[in-house]
């Protein structure tokens, strides 16, 4: 296949019927293919998140990243938007689910969609990817170093996150988890706990933890970037999505 793509900013219908901004990329060849919703990390809808969207399209997938901060900070720079949302306690879970659903439906409506949709999220988006997979009918979910999927945040914790353990039984699709062995958010203990829960319920999942990598090892624009772990992680993603979203890509 060729890796020619078209990338653009679009408006989609998110939670509650709100019109929100999103960044979309699609392969130029119109073969039927799967869709990937990219959930951006807590620093926001930034240039790296958009690069990830383009990477999925270059590998043959329809891809979109909704701007989860559209409502609080329309048109603001990503870091200002992230600061405004952090000060307000983060993105509510219910709204996240509605925005991911809107993004997945948007991609499924495109002519080259094969009706399959997956999700991937990084950092806070890793937890939100698991949340979406427990709340929506999806075909595949990738969790990249998401914290607070299990366990309870300390008392007085300012960001409104809760454990997703009560939702785990509703998981709708296979899960690929990619973690840094040196990360403390989530810690290796948290990752093991999640693994135990998924095993117990007979879920279809696979986890990989990379030695020498901490949090954010995929982020090429940060000092946390670990190319070896990131490259291995990308290979796992291509294999996992290829199997569950039904496209061969390259």
């Amino acid at each position: 296949m060729r890796d020619d793509i078209k990338a653009e900013t679009v408006t989609i219908t998110g939670h509650g019927g709100d019109q929100i901004e999103a960044y979309q990329a699609q392969p130029l060849d119109q073969e039927k293919t799967g869709a990937v919703v990219v959930i951006h990390h807590m620093p926001g809808y930034d240039s790296w998140s958009k690069e990830v969207v383009r990477t999925f399209a270059a590998h043959g997938y329809l891809a979109i990243c909704p701007n989860l901060y559209s409502r609080e900070a329309p048109g603001a720079s990503p870091d200002d938007a992230a600061a405004a949302v952090r000060a307000k306690g983060g993105v509510p879970d219910e709204r996240l689910v509605g925005d991911v659903e809107g993004a997945a439906n948007h991609l499924r409506s495109l002519p080259s969609s094969n009706d399959k949709a997956g999700v991937i999220g990084y950092c806070s988006g890793g937890r939100q990817s698991f949340l979406a997979a427990c709340s929506l009918p999806l075909d595949a979910a990738v969790v990249c170093y998401g914290a607070f999927i299990v366990g309870t945040p300390p008392e007085g914790f300012p960001i409104k996150v809760t454990s997703l353990e009560p939702l785990a039984a509703q998981l709708s699709c296979p899960v690929l988890g990619l973690f840094g062995a040196e990360d403390q958010h989530p810690s290796p203990e948290e990752v093991t706990r999640l693994e135990e829960i998924l095993k117990k319920q007979g879920a279809d999942f696979e986890f990989h933890s990379y030695p020498g990598a901490g949090h954010g090892f995929f982020a090429t624009d940060r000092t946390s970037y670990r190319p070896e772990a990131a490259n291995e992680g990308w290979e796992e993603i291509w294999e996992f999505y290829g199997r569950n979203l039904g496209t061969g890509a390259n």
Binding site: A76, S77, A81, A82, T223
Partner: peptide, 26 residues
């Protein structure tokens, strides 16, 4: 937490804000 610009894994980050004026008032 992780910085946007500083070249460290974690930094102490301070945002001085006026939410009434919008996210750019920072």
């Amino acid at each position: 937490d992780h910085p946007v610009h500083a070249q460290s894994e974690h930094t102490l980050n301070l945002d001085f804000l006026n939410p009434a004026l919008g996210p750019g008032a920072r």
